[in-house]
């Protein structure tokens, strides 16, 4: 059945959980809903016109700009945010040490290779790189560049980010 949503509740499927969105204007972007309504501030808002990629999330397996998704139209879609890439152990407290032990190989490589400076673009890039390597475990340099061409970083000059991607590719290859 078609779902018609007025200014009442709708439910989104985010990081494997059903998350009700209550008392929200239905024209809000997914980015706004994630950050302001659902306490998921990982996706960042900068350009709000799909140019910077800092709000990148996965929607039904595609990397998309959450600022350009009307949240209410995302009912029925599987959404994964940067928070959802980590497989959390719910029995452990969220201390800094615990979180550090749970970060993904891509996140660790960004830290180790110096791919994080101011950090604003990082969550979007982490999602984009996970998306790339899930689909293509051994990308060429051009494929890496194209796949993150929608994510603007003004600090690093991208060199350290490419190094981080390459490091993940090599580690994953070795452990295959």
């Amino acid at each position: 059945m078609s779902e018609s949503i007025g200014n009442e509740m709708y439910t989104l499927r985010i990081n494997g959980q059903d998350r009700p969105v209550v008392d929200a204007w239905v024209g809000e972007s997914l980015l706004y809903v994630l950050r302001e309504r659902l306490e998921l501030p990982g996706a960042k808002g900068a350009c709000e016109q799909g140019e910077c990629g800092s709000c990148t999330v996965l929607m039904d397996g595609d990397a998309v700009c959450s600022c350009l998704v009307m949240a209410a139209t995302a009912v029925g879609a599987e959404i994964v945010t940067v928070e959802g890439l980590i497989e959390k152990d719910p029995s452990m407290a969220a201390t800094a040490e615990v979180i550090a032990s749970q970060i993904t190989d891509v996140q660790q490589a960004f830290i180790t290779e110096g791919g994080v400076q101011c950090g604003f673009c990082t969550p979007g890039l982490i999602v984009a790189v996970h998306h790339l390597l899930d689909k293509n475990p051994d990308p060429t340099e051009l494929q890496v560049k194209e796949s993150i061409s929608g994510n603007i970083c003004r600090c690093t000059g991208y060199g350290r980010i490419f190094a981080a991607v390459e490091a993940v590719v090599q580690v994953r290859k070795a452990s295959r």
Binding site: M1, S2, E3, I5, T73, V75
Partner: peptide, 16 residues
């Protein structure tokens, strides 16, 4: 404001 998310063209025409 309302947002409709039809699953078929027929449903979309109903909404329209």
């Amino acid at each position: 404001m309302t947002v409709a998310v039809p699953l078929s063209l027929i449903e979309a025409f109903d909404e329209l």
